[in-house]
């Protein structure tokens, strides 16, 4: 039995101290003609965690998600879901889905939309309406429940779609680009709600291009490039093991910093008013860099930080899915 380490403050299986696996994707492949959209993809998601499914456009995320949701079939591989019944089967009543291609019945009332989709997920009509009203109130849409969907703004419609995905209290929620097209205020609302899903013990698979939000929300990530997995594991581990660190030095102004540009492993040097920022390949060893900096500059403050996820994402994609050694921490 594989055991994923417990993240602080999160629920574990009784007695084992392990987080139980809710979703297990194994060697999934899907081709369209000669193009391999998903090539041997494997990953898992555990109870009460948020797993980020990342990748550039066309990486195969949506195809993978559609296979997971049972909307399209895989050429090979398996998707196993483990809920209370341990059957391993995909049960629509236990999963929620916010697709990238969003849409509801525009000519129907908001509440009718939610009741219908709730019923399709196995809810009783009254229960669906009761929970829908509660969610609408929570997301400041209480006054819009009897309006036709087409009367709502795009952001409001997206909230309704989000409610439809979580109304039936699923064990697993797949959110494909939930922040796309939202203003910063609504992004905050969604970020808060997604975090609260984790608090309620739901497993969230989150696909997004908003790296700052992914970094803030996700416990683990699985990054795809051209259908293949190129990064996978705890976000903190991935960042720690990334071969490039971000170095920031505050020094006495006027010093000659040209030696830094010539230093092996240094890139993206920026200097302004006594603050020097650059990236440094950690495999070169940090001691020699620190020695050289302290010898040549009068340093007031120095920090060496793991790079933001955005940098890891872009550098991985630019290098054609080759992030460096030891990044896959699964």
């Amino acid at each position: 039995m594989s055991c994923h380490r417990q993240a602080p403050g999160r629920k574990t299986d009784e007695g084992t101290g392990c987080m139980s696996r809710v979703l297990a994707v194994r060697s999934l492949s899907k081709s369209y003609g000669d193009t391999c959209a998903v090539c041997g993809l494997s990953f898992s998601a555990h109870r009460g965690e948020i797993l980020g499914l990342l990748g550039p456009n066309g990486a195969g995320k949506t195809t993978a998600i559609r296979i997971i949701m049972g909307i399209v079939g895989a050429d090979s591989g398996s998707v196993r879901m483990t809920f209370d019944d341990n059957s391993g089967r995909r049960d629509p009543r236990r999963i929620g889905y916010l697709p990238e291609e969003r849409g509801l019945y525009e000519e129907a009332r908001v509440l009718d939309n939610l009741r219908y989709l709730g019923r399709l997920r196995g809810m009783k009509p009254k229960e669906a309406v009761r929970r829908a009203r509660r969610w609408l109130d929570r997301l400041d849409l209480g006054g819009w429940s009897d309006r036709k969907l087409q009367q709502l703004s795009k952001g409001m419609q997206q909230k309704v779609q989000f409610i439809a995905a979580v109304l039936h209290r699923p064990d697993l929620v797949v959110l494909d680009e939930p922040f796309a097209g939202l203003d910063p205020i609504n992004q905050d609302v969604f970020r808060r709600e997604i975090a609260s899903l984790r608090q309620r013990g739901m497993t969230v698979v989150l696909s997004s291009h908003q790296m700052n939000l992914v970094e803030e929300l996700c416990d683990r990530i699985c990054m795809l490039h051209e259908g293949r997995r190129v990064l996978y594991g705890d976000l903190a581990d991935i960042k720690r093991q990334h071969p490039q660190a971000m170095v920031s030095v505050r020094h006495k102004p006027g010093a000659d910093i040209s030696f830094v540009r010539r230093f092996s492993g240094v890139s993206a040097v920026e200097s302004d008013a006594g603050v020097l920022n650059f990236r440094y390949r950690t495999s070169q060893g940090t001691n020699r860099l620190l020695d050289e900096l302290s010898r040549r500059l009068h340093i007031d403050e120095i920090s060496v930080q793991t790079p933001p996820l955005h940098d890891i994402f872009t550098s991985t994609v630019r290098q054609g899915g080759e992030p460096g050694e030891g990044i896959d921490t699964a």
Partner: peptide, 13 residues
């Protein structure tokens, strides 16, 4: 056209 079909197909066959 409404794009609701993906939600429907994830709920039922």
């Amino acid at each position: 056209r409404n794009r609701i079909v993906e939600v429907l197909l994830s709920s039922t066959s």
